[in-house]
Design a protein around this nucleic acid. Sequence first.
DNA 1: TTGAAAGCGCTAACAG
DNA 2: CTGTTAGCGCTTTCAA
Lengths: 326, 326
Amino acid sequence: MADVAQLAGVSKMTVSHVMNGHRHVRPETRAKVEAAMAELDYRPNVTARALRRGRTGVLGLAVSNINMTYSAELARAVIEEAAKHGYRVAVEETRGRPEAEADAWLRSPLTYDGLLISTSALHRVPRGTLPHGYPVVALGESMEDPAVDHVAMDNDGGLGLATRHLLGPGRRRVAFVGGSLAGGTGMVVHRTQGYVETLAAAGIDVDASLVVPCSSGLDGGRVAAAAVLSARADGAVCVTDTVAIGLLRGLADAGVRVPGDIPVVGFDNVKPASYAVPSLTTVDPNVGELVSAAMGMLLERMSGFDGPGRLHVGRCVLVTRESTAL
Amino acid sequence: MADVAQLAGVSKMTVSHVMNGHRHVRPETRAKVEAAMAELDYRPNVTARALRRGRTGVLGLAVSNINMTYSAELARAVIEEAAKHGYRVAVEETRGRPEAEADAWLRSPLTYDGLLISTSALHRVPRGTLPHGYPVVALGESMEDPAVDHVAMDNDGGLGLATRHLLGPGRRRVAFVGGSLAGGTGMVVHRTQGYVETLAAAGIDVDASLVVPCSSGLDGGRVAAAAVLSARADGAVCVTDTVAIGLLRGLADAGVRVPGDIPVVGFDNVKPASYAVPSLTTVDPNVGELVSAAMGMLLERMSGFDGPGRLHVGRCVLVTRESTAL
DNA sequence: TTGAAAGCGCTAACAG
DNA sequence: CTGTTAGCGCTTTCAA
């Protein structure tokens, strides 16, 4: 920058103002500066700028698994919402690893003006580890840290919608694929709870063999098909669309027809759900609305709001498609 | 940091060394410093550190569309490869707008120690706009900027594999879905070229109605189904797996059986391809190998290599599955 | 084993 | 309309 200033015969300040348009510069001066910048192929050092300004214009988004469709769609929504407010977004992946990893990640983020975290392992992060006094909003499951703003979907209620949709005339053996009666991520716990409560309300005892745990990817659902069949399920609710799409594949492997033999419901209303064969009935958590709520909270934190953590819970809607069309 | 130093009764330097382990500190001194850091909930300012050190330990990855499965899987591969070398990765989305790609490239320079760009619109960025002398590797299609390292897949050859796989006894009307005879992104141009060349080698004239342009998402493929059918195609190669999965859905809508009526092939060997119903035959570009080549080049650039741009082209392999099992 | 000084590249605040 | 001064928070260099 000093070189540019010297070549243009002005001070560094003038160069700075030409770059930022922060004040009026005489056209000839501006032209000289711009010529010098071009001549020297000058590029501002954004690190120095950030240090001086105290802000970067970039928000961070932490997701546990960047190639899960849900994360990717969430990222897209966050990027669009942030752009409306003039911010860029950088996405980082935490791999959903517990304490150590999340903690290490959380110690470093001061490059970002604010941070959105959507990670499944966060419920295991010791309370107080999160950087209070630094703008953070947790997206997704509760971390049980009351000092941090949370935006959650209504996992419990959403899974209730899905389960009730399947429970019907003569159908009482609805499986829950990807659920767990023995704990797990916050998301799994809450969705399992929704399943259990809904069965209870319908007067059905939970048959543990119908709660089929599985890994969170496509593969988890595919593998789970065997257990679903051997439990003689007459319907299947899945913990996520990804698991559901895997299950569709697993059922196809076994020659089972969907919805004819077993209707299937997912959760998340991710785009591929409507392109699956058969297209997937699912629970739409309204991510756009969640993201805009989260962004609102984050911006408030960034402009100095320092109150206690708040909680926003979205509302879910059932979207019916072929996989439950009987 | 000054506060910590004062509370611990030492100089800022000692605090710095306790943090970084750069030199020996007497255990009692270290303990005092650590106590002070905990007491004050001290968090180092990574921006200041980066400014002083001249490096951040973070690499940038620019993708045009973060919720395309391919981008997400690429990101995952890059993150893992970078981790092997001690780097974190931040992913940014450019939405395929040339300005945004140039922007990520031009403005991020000193935030990231190096930058990988997976481009679709970059071929439209004016040559010379790009910051030479800053570590950059382009992943994917050529930008025709010979000063920049490129790592590309063999789009042309890969599409040849796919097309030849379908051309066979009595099958001469193989469509190319998502292709374009009129230009487009570098990727589309190269894959179309592979299609055209392969037909030529088989002595078949290109029927323009069999080259069906479409948007790049699932929807593009779904919508394209109608054109494929009305062109009386007897097989379909798709520009990407995503388009292919959309096409499967579109054909299912029309009651057309795959592979019975029309076998389908994709490109990218993205994970959902093997979970589609029917599972999708596709071209595997070997992303892992491409990423490791790109990372190698990037690390060389980061350690000062300043030679002319290099080109690495990977090799593709056909993976056959149900969608072409006759 | 510890400290003091200098400065990374930039911009806010105050002149002129 | 333009320049000067000071300093963001940290680490490198040199000195003790």
